[in-house]
Amino acid sequence: MVLKVEIEEPRCVAAGHCVTAAPEVFDQRETDGVVVLLDAAPPPGAYAHVREAALLCPAAAILLRERDGSA
């Protein structure tokens, strides 16, 4: 299973949950705090943090796509 991360930037409300949950995958733009995706295909070790970030996001701005890794 492979996890791909997408963000819908216009939805972002800069609450900062993703940066605290998965700092290796998400950052915030300095000017307005809007999410910056650092790694669209994070290593499996980061999956739990990425899922937490997507769950906590109050604006549903983080989309996760799971694919079978063997495909």
């Binding site: 409300v13 800069a14 900062g16 940066v19 605290t20 915030q28 733009r29 300095e30 000017t31 307005d32 705090g33 809007v34």
Partner: peptide, 14 residues
Amino acid sequence: LRRMLTGAFTVKRI
């Protein structure tokens, strides 16, 4: 309005 303020409340700034 919110996007003018959110830059001051990023995790890094806090």
